[in-house]
Design a binder for these strands. Structure first.
Length: 599
RNA sequence: GGUCCGGUAGCUCAGUUGGAUAGAGCAUCAGCCUUCUAAGCUGAGGGUCAUUGGUUCGAAUCCAAUCCGGAUCACCA
């Protein structure tokens, strides 16, 4: 139980005992952290009880304050200011808390329970390399997976690869026509980039053909439909579906290049998956679900043989589930994969990390599954995030305006190097250590930048302005962590010391403001972690860790640790520093951001 | 047009089930390195919380209407 909850419970119990004849609801008790301009740690708001108790706020505050002080060991004093009861927690509570937890490396972690959750993220198409928008998806998915694990869930990280369809055929056609057999090795280009280049090439060729046909007097719409290269791509897709050996061989070869490229990118990003799904295996699923639905009468067939569901009652429209020729559409596959995932892992919850442009699609998916009585329907959660846009608008891979993921990571690492060198902080590192440090700083900054914003908000990224390494950044937190490690090195204390080290510690002097603020903030971590899990929001961890680092920097500036006033203070501050570093590592670790010991 | 999401400082964003004088970072300005790492610290300026009305002891937060921006409403995926 968090301290805030403890205070709330204590206040509620006290009110019940003080006013047994009045029905006070638990939810009407509001406990906040006391504003810094007042003395106290947690505040009970008295206004909600005025009418109920027919007393003045000061009177209620006094009775409540006295009662709390007399009956519990938690509070040292109270103060009433204009309807607010400000409670001060006993110093001994804080030092005991610190002593109990400062060496705990998994503070805030929940024990593993029975709840099985799948988080599907990344889910790329195989016709082009990953870009900045994918990075938001991937870092979000990876972070949420770790946060859920820390909250005791059993997590399966899944990636559904869209490895078939017209888009990959476009790359294949362009490659056949213009590549002269080029491979990633022969061209010296990463596989996913090579395939992406031919996807762009296809569009160039296509546009040229359309322009030519229009110039020859063709209607533009007709030209777009009849351009020979487009017809070839469509023919290739038909051949693929028919299992044509040559087409399949080329498809496998080019997808293989892409996977190799993706693997590199994923490794660099520091993310991984427990389960890969491929649309080439799953795109035919779902038909059976549709047949069942027809039998149950939930779905209906039109004269042309196409199958539909009527969602008008739910404020939506009729939705197609099978074409007249019996082939499936996008949502049909998704029905199938939803069920497949559910059955593969006996899931309680299935999280889809998908951009908000698909809100409607997921809504329809859930609705159909629930109308069909599929048990997987209830567990679907759409972690909907806003698109990443350029100042000029959306990124379009066809037009080559994307910010490439590999480039972006390389740039961030280079920026980290540049700034480290400019600050003259390269001494004492080996070449290898420096390379690792630049990666830690560069990728940390990138991940933090993408995760610090509420997922559902869209974000605008200006490639001309590089991502900052000052202020509200991962670098700031890393720096605070490195400072702590530096102190510990000098004091010859390991980063995770033995719990017995300060066992003899006794609190004699009162806590200073910043000392207490640090401990108070540390105590709140489990609550923040639980909230981040409940809301699928890594940004709350960013906020929390930044605030922790900020507090530590002020604390560090105001009070010397190694040259503390006395041994007691020194031990106390060391414990605070040790625990702060540990919580920074834990929280940022969940986001895939490493904390260097030296920088 | 329907549905959904957003609108808070010059910019990027926090802001808990409604609680005290709305907070950070960047940018600007003024200070702080002989003292545990200045990628830092301290301070200043900067606000019609889109608008209007309502609910109430109290609203950035809840409700209604309006305005602006975005997404979506395919026999594409």
């Amino acid at each position: 139980m968090t301290l805030a909850a403890l205070v709330k419970q204590a206040a509620f119990d006290a009110l019940k005992q003080l006013y047994p004849d009045t029905a006070i609801e638990y939810s009407s008790v509001t406990v906040n952290q006391t504003k810094p301009e007042f003395s106290g740690d947690y505040t009970v708001v008295l206004f909600p009880f005025l009418k109920l108790l027919r007393q003045k706020p000061d009177a209620i505050g006094k009775q409540l304050g006295d009662h709390l002080l007399g009956r519990t060991e938690l509070f040292a004093s109270y103060d009433i200011v204009a309807g607010f009861l400000n409670l001060t927690i006993k110093d001994s509570y804080w030092s005991t808390f610190l002593l109990n937890h400062y060496t705990q490396t998994n503070f805030g972690h929940q024990c593993k329970g029975d709840c099985r959750v799948m988080v599907e993220y990344s889910s790329p198409n195989t016709n082009k390399p990953l870009h900045f928008g994918h990075m938001r998806n991937i870092f979000l998915g990876a972070a949420v997976s770790e946060i859920l694990k820390a909250n005791g869930k059993q997590v399966v990280k899944a990636n559904l690869i869209n490895d078939r369809g017209i888009h990959i055929c476009k790359s294949m056609i362009a490659w056949e026509k213009t590549a002269n057999g080029a491979t990633p090795e022969s061209a010296g280009v990463k596989g996913d980039h090579l395939v992406g280049d031919y996807y762009v090439r296809f569009n160039d060729l296509y546009k040229a053909e359309v322009t030519e046909m229009v110039a020859a007097g063709k209607d533009e719409k007709a030209a777009e439909k009849e351009a020979p290269i487009m017809l070839e791509a469509q023919e290739m897709l038909r051949k693929w579906e028919a299992g044509d050996k040559e087409v399949r061989a080329l498809w496998e070869k080019m997808n293989g290049w892409v996977y190799k490229g993706f693997d590199d990118t994923y490794r660099k990003m520091g993310v991984s998956f427990d389960k890969m799904y491929y649309e080439s295996n799953t795109y035919l699923l779902g038909k059976k679900i549709v047949e069942d639905g027809l039998r149950k009468g939930v779905l209906f067939r039109k004269e042309d043989g196409s199958v539909w569901i009527d969602l008008k009652e739910d404020g939506l429209d009729e939705k197609l589930l099978l074409r007249g020729d019996g082939t499936s559409v996008y949502i049909t596959q998704d029905l199938g994969t939803a069920k497949l995932k559910y059955e593969d892992y006996k899931l309680h919850q299935s999280v889809y990390v998908i951009a908000d442009e698909q809100n409607y699609h997921i809504q329809v998916l859930k609705l159909i599954l629930s109308k069909l009585g599929e048990p997987c329907a209830n567990g679907i959660y759409h972690l909907s995030y806003g698109m990443v846009e350029l100042p000029s608008g959306r990124m379009k891979s066809r037009e080559g305006t994307v910010v490439d993921a590999d480039d972006m990571m390389a740039e961030m690492i280079a920026l980290a190097q540049e700034q480290t060198e400019a600050a003259g902080k390269t001494t004492g590192f080996s070449g290898d250590e420096l390379r690792k440090l630049y990666e830690t700083i560069g990728l940390g900054a990138l991940k933090f930048y993408l995760l610090r914003v509420d997922p559902k908000k869209k974000m605008i990224f200006d490639p001309k302005e590089s991502i900052d390494l000052h202020g509200y950044t991962a670098t700031f937190i890393q720096y605070a962590h490195a400072r702590i490690c530096s102190i510990l090195r000098k004091e010859d204390i390991p980063i995770v010391p033995d719990a017995s080290r300060f066992q003899s510690f006794h609190q004699r002097e009162p806590l200073l403001k910043l000392e207490k603020e640090m401990i108070l903030h540390l105590e709140q971590y489990p609550g923040i972690l639980a909230e981040a899990g409940a809301e699928f929001n890594p940004a709350s961890l960013c906020n929390y860790a930044f605030r922790l680092a900020q507090l530590f920097n002020s604390f560090y500036d105001a009070h010397s640790i190694s040259k503390a006033e006395n041994q007691e203070k020194k031990e106390l501050r060391l414990m605070i520093a040790i625990m702060a570093a540990s919580v920074m590592r834990h929280s940022m670790g969940l986001l895939g951001i490493r904390m260097p010991e030296k920088m």
